[in-house]
Simulated scan of single mutants.
Amino acid sequence: MPQRTWSSTVVEHHRLRADLAVVRLVGDVVPFRPGQYVDISVPQNARLLRRLSPALPPSGDGKLEFHVKTVPGGWVSGSIVRDTMPGDTWQILDPRGEMSVDPGGPPVIMIAGGTGLAPMRSIILDLARTPNPPQVYLFFGGRTRRDLYAADMLWLLADDLPWLQPVPVVEDVSDDGPPDEWFDRLGVDIGFGDDHLIEGTLPDVVTSYGAFDRHQVLVCGSAAMVRSTRDRLIATGTPAESIQFDPY
């Protein structure tokens, strides 16, 4: 079966960090499910595809949002972060992936490293449309507090959604990371104070709570982070069949 393609036009490009941007588009209605990912083609490198997860649930008006982080040697991700302009046309290819949440099921454990937060946000906003969402515990993390690029948004979201509990995790709370003119220019308060931050790696922190044997468990982030987290969860007693994962 030939692969389907949809077109979408960039309407906003927000540089949040030297290596990270949020891109918003409007165009064709792409029939994806919250938690899925798509391959995209951008005009800066049209022949190379980049896999991204929408950070918003599907909408009838064709709105899309992607969180893009530069990866070492990543020609497409780097050009998206640096060079994307309003008016650029992106090609969106067939949605894939099975990560999802049963809104009538047991409590949810979400574990997101870096921009692996994007599909989790899509699922959370979709759950907010349902009458009785399950309790959601969202562990999201990075190496330093500066890596918590969407912490301010999650702080506000949790204030509106009593069933959502974000848990910010940083590997070193005393390390602010290298200077970043984009972060400094924004001057954003991440919302979470020192008393909210948990120090450690995501696998260490998440598994310190024991086995999640009566939960829906979702993991998304780098391939290494997903592999380590899944292995540690299983070793701690979380059933392998309860874990959905997506290397991002």
Rank of each mutant, 00 (worst) to 15 (best):
L56E: 09
P57E: 06
P57F: 00
P58K: 03
S59A: 11
L64T: 06
E65F: 05
E65C: 05
V68T: 11
P72A: 14
P72R: 11
G73Q: 12
G73T: 12
G74N: 14
W75K: 14
W75H: 13
W75S: 14
S77Y: 07
G78F: 08
S79T: 15
S79P: 01
S79N: 14
S79K: 10
V81D: 01
D83C: 09
M85V: 15
M85Q: 15
P86H: 07
P86S: 07
G87N: 10
G87C: 05
T89L: 04
Q91T: 12
I92K: 00
L93T: 00
P95N: 11
E98M: 10
S100L: 14
V101C: 01
D102I: 02
P106N: 04
P106A: 01
P106L: 04
P107K: 00
P107M: 00
V108F: 08
V108M: 01
M110L: 07
M110I: 05
M110N: 00
I111T: 12
A112C: 04
G114T: 07
T115R: 00
P119C: 06
P119Y: 08
M120E: 03
R121C: 10
R121Y: 01
S122M: 02
I124S: 06
L125C: 04
L127S: 11
R129C: 06
R129D: 08
T130A: 04
T130Q: 13
N132I: 10
P134M: 03
Q135H: 05
V136L: 06
Y137V: 10
Y137K: 07
Y137I: 08
L138P: 07
L138A: 09
L138K: 08
F140H: 12
F140R: 03
G141H: 01
A150V: 13
A150R: 08
A150S: 11
M153A: 10
L154P: 09
L156V: 11
A158H: 04
D160A: 10
L161D: 06
L161N: 09
W163S: 01
L164P: 08
L164G: 07
V167H: 02
V169I: 15
V169M: 01
V170W: 03
E171H: 09
D172H: 09
S174C: 04
S174M: 05
D175G: 06
P179S: 13
E181V: 09
D184C: 08
D184S: 13
R185I: 02
G187K: 09
G187Q: 01
D189N: 15
D189Y: 05
D189A: 13
G191V: 03
